[in-house]
Amino acid sequence: MLDFSAPREPSTPREPSTPRKPRVSGTLKPLRIAVPKGSLYRESIDLLTQAGLDTRGLIEPGRQLVIHNEGVSFFIVRPTDAPVFVAYGGVDCGICGKDSLLEAELELMELADLRFGGCRFVVAEPAAAHGAAEDSYRRLGVMRVATKYPRIAASYYDSIGVQVEIVKMHGNVELAPLCGMADRVVDITASGSTLRENDLVIVDEVLASTARFVGNPSSVRIDPRVNELAERLKALVGKEPPRRREA
């Protein structure tokens, strides 16, 4: 069972029949929102501001990780951790990329497509080694793929019926094929420039991703503010075409 709480002092026993003070369900507490730092950060803040939230101090948070404003608390998180904070109820809701959601595979509610932070998952290989990956697959029966997203990569290769060995990396994935450690990479790209600069060419598309507004299932059910915010965000982003994530 989950227990994130600090060890508690043993409390004095009380009679089971003592009436409890009625409590208003959460509504007086500030709404807790996870905001991903990095490429989605600025646009997340813009959108939350337009939605009428008090985002003062969020643009220049310094070393602060939590910003407490009127009626709302912002938690500045690593993009890949945002789904964890939301699913486990550390926050009521948050913004994160579809990519992080797919990779985390956690139980949370995907409430709105925010249509910014557009990027694609692609398969790439060194331009110079064109054909080598296929050759390796044909003669060794296996292909080695480096990625920061092992779950997405695995489900993609499973779906196309190709058996691969996946190497989980934490960054600079492009290096793996360049030094011959892997045949290909599965990575996200917005404009493709990082891949090009490292002499990698895209050989396949895996899926497209944009930023999403997500909610903790418990919070969505018992705190109407989460859905209200989702509706406001949906109205703001409308149906304009997705905007690319600046890489």
């Binding site: 069972m1 709480s5 043993p10 089971p16 003070k21």
Partner: peptide
């Protein structure tokens, strides 16, 4: 989970600790 929720709720029943 119920016990976890109980610990977070004000004035909730506590076991006869100790």
């Amino acid at each position: 989970r119920a016990m976890h929720a109980l610990l977070t709720q004000e004035g909730a029943d506590r076991a006869n600790l100790g």
